[in-house]
Amino acid sequence: MSRTITCPVCGRRNGYEFRFGGEDKGPRPEEEGMSPEKWFEYTHLNDCKAGIRKEWWFHRDGCGVWFTIFRDTASNREVVRPPERELEAVP
């Protein structure tokens, strides 16, 4: 894989060593006001937008840590953390 991912413990490594853990959707929803729709949205729906996204990755063949990185889904490259407003501006 030409993609590399930077693990907070092990540094920049071959993308094959990692497992994708989905978009960063925040913590589990609160017990209060839970509805089937809300639950479905949290567990199954993704934004799937082209551009810079914050994602969870797991260093499976390494230190075994879950962490987030920023990835440009259009170029499939890891990128440095962009300024907040740029993140917001992703269409």
Binding site: R19, G26, P27, R28, W56, F58, G64, V65, W66
Partner: peptide, 12 residues
């Protein structure tokens, strides 16, 4: 298993 348990507690 370790991956699973760590995943589901990753925010806390």
């Amino acid at each position: 298993t370790i991956e699973w348990i760590r995943y589901h507690t990753r925010y806390e």
